[in-house]
Amino acid sequence: MNFLIYLINGIGLGSVYAIIALGYTMVYGIAKMLNFAHGDVIMIGCYTVFLTMTRYGMDPYISVALSVVVCTLLGIMIEKIAYKPLRRATSLAVLITAIGVSYFLQNAALLLFGANTKSFSNVVNVPGITLADGALKISGTTIVTVAVCIVIMLVLTWFIKNTKAGQAMLAVSEDKDAAQLMGVNVNGTISLTFAIGSGLAAIAGVLFCSAYPTLTPYTGSMPGIKAFTAAVFGGIGSIPGAFIGGILLGIIEILGRAYISSQLSDAIVFAVLIVVLLVKPTGILGKKIHEKV
């Protein structure tokens, strides 16, 4: 029974990683860059919810919606200011710029909101479920997190398959220049990808902070790195891959913490990642790209 509880908690945590990993994987697929600042967008989203709820007493749902708007705008702004001028530069230059943006967001948050830890109040007010005569309790947060994750996955898959903008995304990720020649608005599509990824980051942040209610300017960086790991784990660039990678990573982390060692849970996660990548170097669902000579 304990195992089942850990498994469910793992799926809950994994769903959060999956939502964040979607942001990483979409941006990677389309702009071929690691957006290191993604984790810090999550943190900004959490602070937005925290401030609007505690200081202005807003309704949780309105404040979550507001934080999605804030993060979406932030994502578009970051893309326009920092990444767009480097569209044709080497990937390493873009990576370092993304790191710069990450530092910037962390330190801006430090100045705006202070260094002390804020305790985040759970925004999810759905009652939990008790099964098997009280032996198996599933919290409302976990249920909502998993449900939200599944809905997002479905909507996103539908969006990419069935809308013009989604098709444009696929085209741009396949070949930017060819897409441009076919009349796809490449810059607009990339902005849209950043917007969606950052909006999702806000939702993921709220769910993460509802489960782990401590908020500091550095809150975003570790889940960010883990979600990035999840994206690579599942095969970066692949949307179902991000989902599978996220869920598996969450389960491994919780089970590792429970059965092996709480201090080593991060090490276990990373060790599993290394083993998977060594067996299948492009991740679980990653496509193997044959090199042309």
């Binding site: 990677y28 690691l34 990937s91 790195i225 990035f228 790991t229 690579v232 970066i236 060692s261 201090q263 080593l264 991060d266 090490a267 990373f270 060790a271 990642l273 290394i274 990548l277 060594l278 170097p281 492009t282 991740g283």
Partner: peptide, 28 residues
């Protein structure tokens, strides 16, 4: 030995993972 089979971003994330593992193990 194992890592250099990988390329680019995959290599980056695996070296990052090894670095974190070393740090974690030293702590116990």
């Amino acid at each position: 030995v194992p890592v250099l089979r990988l390329k680019g971003d995959y290599l980056a994330i695996v070296t990052l993972a090894f670095g974190e593992i070393i740090k974690n193990i030293v702590n116990v």
